[in-house]
């Protein structure tokens, strides 16, 4: 067995591609260290690699051990992300209704409970930041889209608006955004929960930026271009502030999360299916 085939098998059970890459790099360095020490003691190069792999053990056993350690991590990340999302929703909701502050207090209490555990990595904020740092493109794209949608009072102000094209292009832009998220989500195809989690986090940014930017623009715009701009405050029922909170901060994130979760499940299933039917190709590809 060649070293790369060994590493592939040893990390086969790890769902996250990023984690699998990390483990492969680490095991590769270990194998090279052992091999070099054996060679320094007079062992031929090829035999020293085989010896290093033998000492590291059966790659399938190693794969199961890594899977047991690493695949169970994300549900905690999901819980932490959900906590952060709840905090953001409560914070925005409290702008409209002070009773939402109770939700914010509850979120803060759960956060504090998690914070005092001895396990340093059970820190929702750190986990959220790590998640967004790794997939910052998703967060940035959705936040930008959120700003675009939130500024609708300006560019979507009816037939007199100088932005009719922008208004018409919005649905197309959203569709493209959805495809973009799905494409970025391909990196997470083996972890539907992770794909759903990152999208849930990112779309909470989407909803927050959307509401905040619309709200700020409505307040600071010097002259209302048309009746439509008051939809943040006293517009007809579908455009009330509560409706927008519900639509932007709850319903859109839930929809996007579901789309990415189901999409990842389908893609993971298709890839698993194609791998099981193409074993010859896989073996050939690994030499």
């Amino acid at each position: 067995m060649e070293i790369f085939e060994y590493l592939e098998r040893a990390t086969h059970g790890i769902r996250s591609n990023a984690d699998a890459r990390k483990v492969r790099s680490e095991l590769y360095a270990h194998l090279r260290f052992v091999s070099e020490r054996q060679q320094a003691e007079g062992m031929p190069a090829e035999e020293s690699i085989r010896e290093a792999m033998r000492r590291l053990g059966d790659p399938d056993v190693l794969s199961r051990a890594f899977a047991a350690q690493m695949n169970g991590v994300f549900p905690r990340g999901i819980a932490q992300s959900a906590l952060a999302l709840g905090g953001i929703v409560a914070a925005i909701g409290s702008l409209a209704d002070p009773w939402w502050l109770l939700g914010l207090l509850l979120t803060a209490a759960v956060y504090a409970l998690l914070r005092v555990t001895p396990e340093e990595r059970r820190t929702p904020l750190l986990s959220l930041l790590r998640l967004l740092r790794r997939h910052w493109l998703v967060g940035a794209a959705l936040a930008l889209a959120g700003f675009f949608i939130g500024s609708e009072p300006i560019w979507g102000a009816g037939v007199y608006s100088p932005w009719p094209f922008a208004a018409q292009a919005t649905p197309a832009g959203l569709l493209l955004l959805l495809f973009g998220v799905a494409a970025l989500g391909l990196d997470l195809y083996r972890r539907p929960a992770a794909a759903g989690g990152i999208v849930a986090v990112a779309t909470s940014v989407f909803g927050s930026v959307s509401l905040a930017s619309g709200f700020v623009l409505w307040h600071f715009y010097p002259a209302a271009p048309s009746q439509n701009v008051d939809w943040f405050a006293s517009g007809p029922p579908p455009y009330s502030f509560t409706y927008l909170v519900y639509q932007n901060v709850i319903w859109h994130p839930v929809q996007f999360t579901a789309v990415c979760f189901l999409g990842s499940l389908v893609i993971a299933g298709l890839i698993g299916f194609s791998r099981s039917w193409l074993p010859t190709f896989t073996r050939t590809a690994h030499g």
Binding site: V23, E26, L27, H30, V34, R55, L56, G57, D58, V61, L62, A65, F66, A68, Q69, M70, V73, P118, E119, E120, R121, R122
Partner: peptide
């Protein structure tokens, strides 16, 4: 120390916050 069990063990300790 079995080398094969060392790395999963290290990841477990890292996940639990005992090592970084």
């Amino acid at each position: 120390l079995k080398e094969g069990t060392l790395y999963p063990r290290l990841y477990q300790l890292e996940r639990e916050g005992f090592v970084r």
